[in-house]
């Protein structure tokens, strides 16, 4: 069980036919129950983070379960048109940010290295 859902932030994408994370999960592991999304069969979660990137409210994040760590770090993501921003919240509360190109903006090509 490696994805956690912040119940406060989750709106269940109310009004939509299905929640974004429910739509995208490759394992069909996320289901809307009432107005919130729940993880089922979470043991099979592959940490692909598709749901994390899809959530419009950043209600989902990856966690490292106790056999591997369990110190409470969280990995959030936010996808914009051309980049994916990752926010790594460390157990100490400090945050690291990574912004990674994810799609070519036709007007602004990827810079040369």
């Amino acid at each position: 069980m490696t994805v956690a859902i912040d119940i406060e932030k989750c709106t269940g994408c109310s009004g939509a036919r299905e929640a974004q994370c429910e739509r995208i999960c490759p394992g069909g592991l996320l289901v809307r129950e009432g107005v919130k999304v729940q993880l089922r069969g979470g043991g099979a979660c592959w940490d692909c983070a598709a749901c994390v990137k899809s959530c419009p409210h950043q209600a989902l994040y990856l966690i490292l379960p106790w056999p591997l760590g369990g110190r409470g770090a969280r990995l959030y993501a936010r996808a914009s048109a051309t980049e994916t921003e990752w926010i790594l919240r460390l157990p100490s509360g400090r945050e690291e940010r990574y912004v990674i190109p994810a799609r070519i903006n036709q007007k602004k090509p990827v810079p040369e290295i």
């Binding site: 490292l64 770090a73 990752w86 790594l88 690291e96 990674i100």
Partner: peptide, 20 residues
């Protein structure tokens, strides 16, 4: 290296983060 893992296996970066 961390950025490359975020593009393929984000759990690796989470692992480093969890271990600070």
């Amino acid at each position: 290296l961390e950025e490359a893992y975020l593009e393929m296996c984000p759990r690796m970066v989470l692992w480093w983060g969890d271990h600070e």
